[in-house]
Structures are given as C-alpha cells and as structure tokens.
Design a protein around this nucleic acid. Sequence first.
DNA 1: CTGAAAGCGCTTACAG
DNA 2: CTGAAAGCGCTTACAG
Lengths: 334, 334
Amino acid sequence: MIERRKKPTIKDVAREAGVSIATVSNVLKGKTTEVSEPTVEKILKKVSELGYVKNMTASALASRESRVVAVVVIGAFDPGMPLEHQDLNPFFGDFLFRLEYEARRRGYTLMLYAGREEKYLNFLLERSADAAVLVGINPQDMPSVVARSDLRLILFDSMLDDRNQMNVRTNEIRGGEIAAEYLISTGCKKLGFVGHVSMGGKSVPYLRYSGAKKICDESGISIKEFNRVTAFQQGMEVAAEILENGIDGVVTAADTIAAGLVDGLRDQGIDVPGQVSVIGYDNLPLARLVKPSLTTIDQGLTDKVGAVMDLVENGSPGDLREIEPRLVIRESTR
Amino acid sequence: MIERRKKPTIKDVAREAGVSIATVSNVLKGKTTEVSEPTVEKILKKVSELGYVKNMTASALASRESRVVAVVVIGAFDPGMPLEHQDLNPFFGDFLFRLEYEARRRGYTLMLYAGREEKYLNFLLERSADAAVLVGINPQDMPSVVARSDLRLILFDSMLDDRNQMNVRTNEIRGGEIAAEYLISTGCKKLGFVGHVSMGGKSVPYLRYSGAKKICDESGISIKEFNRVTAFQQGMEVAAEILENGIDGVVTAADTIAAGLVDGLRDQGIDVPGQVSVIGYDNLPLARLVKPSLTTIDQGLTDKVGAVMDLVENGSPGDLREIEPRLVIRESTR
DNA sequence: CTGAAAGCGCTTACAG
DNA sequence: CTGAAAGCGCTTACAG
C-alpha cells in the first residue's frame, strides 16, 4: 500500500492541546462539566484539526462497552443451495436494514451472523457485543452457554420465554384471529391455513394458526391446516390441494407463501378473490406489489425494531414487548 | 443481571496450564511448530475445560487485525419513507447474506452500514475493520479522506476507477449486449431500455444501456431509453409508454423493474412475451417466481462475492475483478 | 479542574 | 522451546 500518515490517537490530541489524555477522554465523552470551558475548546479545536476519530476497538476494550449489537439470523440462507434457488424471505432484508437504521440513530453498529445453528456460539462469545438479537430462534437452537453468558439477549419473534432473556414479538395469536375474523366476515365458509405449523405450540406459524382456529371454532367454521415452509414455491404448490378441499378462504403464515398461492391459484384458472380469498402475513413491500395486492397482517415491524433497541439500551431480563398486529385490506380478499 | 462467572481470559488458561500467556497465544494461533507437543496438548485441554474463547476486541487492538469486514450500502433504504412504502431491492439482502456466508467461511465477520452518504466516514474510521466493501458507490459519495485512509477499499458494482482502490463488478456493457442480441435474435424489431440511465457513463444502468445500444446500432435496430429508478413501481408505470412507442422488446436494468413492467403490460391486456418481450437483470430469486418467469442476465453474484473476499485477503490496490454475465432464458421472452 | 497510573486482554519481538 | 516485558489506544478511579 501507498505510504500514509498514521491515524492520530488520543495521545496526539493531548500533546497538541497541552493536556493529559485523561482530560481529552473526558471531553470526548461529553463530561464537559468536569472540564473548564477554555480547555474544552482547545481540545475540540485540536480534534478537528488533526481529524481525530476515536478508536472504538480500544474504547470497547477499556470500557467494556462496544456499542455493537450482534444480529443472529439462523436458517434464512442455505449455503448448500445454489444462489439461484435461494428463496430468501425478503423479510430478513427489510428487518436488517430497518434495524440498522434504528441502531445507528442511537449510536450502535450492527454485526451480522447468518450461519447455521451450531456455530453462532463462538461468534457471540468472541465479539464483545453489548447485546445480541436472535431472530426466530427455537429452544433447541439456543445453547445453554449463551443463555448463561452475561450478554444481553433479545429474542425476536421467538417462542422461548425465560426470565433471563428479553423478548420482542407480535401478538401472533391475535394476528391469526384477525385474519380469520375478517375472512369469515366477508363470507368465507371453509378456511385453510398454510404455514410451517408442524413444530407445534412453540412456533410462530402455529400460534397464528391457533388464533385462526379459535375464531373458526367459535363461529362453527372448519379450518384445515397445510404444513408448508415459508417460501413462494411452497405456496404455489399447495394451490391444488386448497381447491380439492373446497376451501374459499386461506390464512397464510407469510406474504411470500400468499404470493405463491395466489399465483398457483391463478394458474389453475381460479379468480382471487372472486372464488378464493387469500390473506398474507407481515405486510412486506411485496404485498403491495403483487397482483392482486395482498390483504395481510401488518406485524408492526417499525415498532418492533424500536422495541428491540429500547431493550438493548434499557431492558431488564424477562422484559417482553408484544406488539399488536393490524389488518391491512387490499385486493386479495372479498 | 444474575450473578455470573466471569469469562476466562488467556491469563486463566496460562495459569491453569502452568505456562506463560505468550505460549498460550502462540498455540491459539496455530504456531504449534514453535511449541512442544506436550505443552500444546496441555494448553488445548485447559482451553476446552475452561471454555475459553478469545476476546477478538483485545486481539484486534494488539495485532491490528480485526477480521471484520465493513459493508457500506448507501441508498438502499430510505429512512424518511414509511416502511410500508419501502421498496428495498431484494438484491441487497441476497448480496448481504451471500457475502456473510463467504466471509464467515474464511473467518471474517460483517459489520453493516446502511445510512446516508455523509456519515459513513466516521463509521469506517472508528471501527477498525480490515477492509470495507462499498456497494454501488458514486464518485461524489466517496470522501477523499476515505480514499486516503489506510483501509483496504473494495468497490462493488461501482464506476470509480482509481489505482488506490480495488474493484469487483460485472462486465455491464457485455450484459447489455447479450440482452439486446438475444431479443433481436428472437425477432424483436424495436427495443426499449428501462433503467436509471440519467447519470451517464459512470452508472451501472448506463453501461448496460450502452451495451444494448451498441448491438442495436450494429443491427440497424432502434432503441429508446426510459429513465427510471430501480423499483417495481417504476417498471409498472412505464408500461403505457412502452406501448405508445410501439416497442416489442425491452431490456431492463433490474429484475424488479422487469417484474413491474410485466405486471404493467398485463394490466393493459398485453401478452408477455407474445406481444412484448421483457428481459430482466440480476437473476434474483424473484425472477424465477414471477409469472411469466423472467429471462434475465445473471450477474454472477456467487463469483463476485468470492472475488470480494479474495481481495479482502490478498488484493492489491488497483486490482479489478470483472465477472462475465450470463443469459438465463425463461418465459418472458419469445 | 487536571494528570499520573493502572488496567482492559491480547500480540510481538526478543532474550535466554 | 518458553517467558518477561512493552505496547495496542483507550477508560477509570483517585490523588492533588
């Protein structure tokens, strides 16, 4: 590399300003009440003259505060699959960029981990983040070592209540209820639910399903579940089964599935919403964009991301922030 | 927080193993040739007994190697817009997750910056990353301070040649050529190009356009440009203009635009590809998923991400890795 | 109000 | 083959 001037350190600033590095350090972190006005001015002047920027690595080591938030997303991306067959749920990108914005606004930087389960432990332990956000984590994916470390752990959309962790999620049962209520109110007589329900009570899709089922039971309407992973393709493939079962209203666990289902139904010559109503989940940007645009459940992502950062900054073990979902009516329902 | 055992340090390992911390450090970084077999065994045993994990912050400070790669993505996300109107190009998510996988495979962690231009300078300077990947950066977005710092800079899909930086990109001109050649070979008589061409020769869309134009000129076929930002909505809105101009083959600068255009054309009762052929760019997962599925230009993302990490590890200033694009034929062309 | 000094947990010549 | 010591660039009581 080309010869370059070394980056100035706090020592350089101190020397130039004729003060000690302790004083510079105090000024830099805004403890200006403890330092006289002229000294502050002198230091700030030198800081900008020299183009000094604090070395966060050194700061983190000394203060034990890194202002880094680790984000762990498991299973969003399957390295075993060729890229062209990856079907990354756009939710993860939306979530990440939105969280990054909120984090930076508050002076934090995001570190990303998106590998497979077994290995995120080391990542969390060796990178001294102030907090870690675990997205969609299952109990079996959470090594007890992590649960016991002194890292602030924030579980996002996870079904793992533990008084040592913090949780942010949407009221998923209510989301399922809202979806079913709306379909029934628009005249649907036989409902279906498409999502990854096989994992039972601890999974998000299952909770959405159980909310929908509760409403159906109360209304004397039948609901049939179709166990499918969150992916466009899976939604598409389930279309035939929906028809065979004479279903006229479908609650899905994700907009991606719903978009696939709508396409699948259209391929079979079925009119949506004329013959079958479909309701998505998440209110992703794509929900507006597909044809017909999707009626969906907004999971309140903006609020959730804010809640995550609130907990990063001021949360206590056991804290739970549950956001209420909201129905967004578009064209895929009657 | 609950009372917890402190994390063991290299000192604890050294004490337990009865050696100096220097020896432990050597063993941990695989310099086992310099240490006797029994000592290595003894140390490794204690490491796993104590559950010792290296503190990368301290390691980075001492060695000046953080094994962190900073990723800077400008303008993918607009914080000023409400989330439900965000139209984040899924490309960014795909790119990020794919790069994360490749980085982790090689022992690196990703840090993300996705804010606005002016502020990424501090981020880059205060977080001592080993290298920074700047995605789709324009000359005016690159402060000279960054260009001059001793950070390894890798420009991705950027049009900023400088012998101090490294570059990874697709041969964009060739991509445009391939697209136009194919449309013409299938019988299209009048072409259109939709993309953000207004920035001229230094922008990626413009290069794609100029490749297409070159082929058209050689074949005596006309091509009209439609200046649109990369977004589904924009593709949709341009449909009417395409028809007014009697165009029967469209090259686009992105799959998202192409998907919007196809929907827009269908809304107007036009058959794709029967009446108008449309060709995308990027070969995103969504290109397979929309109806009709998109013929598109694969930009070789897997190769590009590999090239990025090659440069992070072994690149020299001025290095350029240019990946050749590839035509992927699906249903949106004749 | 300001500074000297110890310390954060590592790495790196260098001496033996 | 192994260890003592200095140092990375900060922060933090504490003394004056």
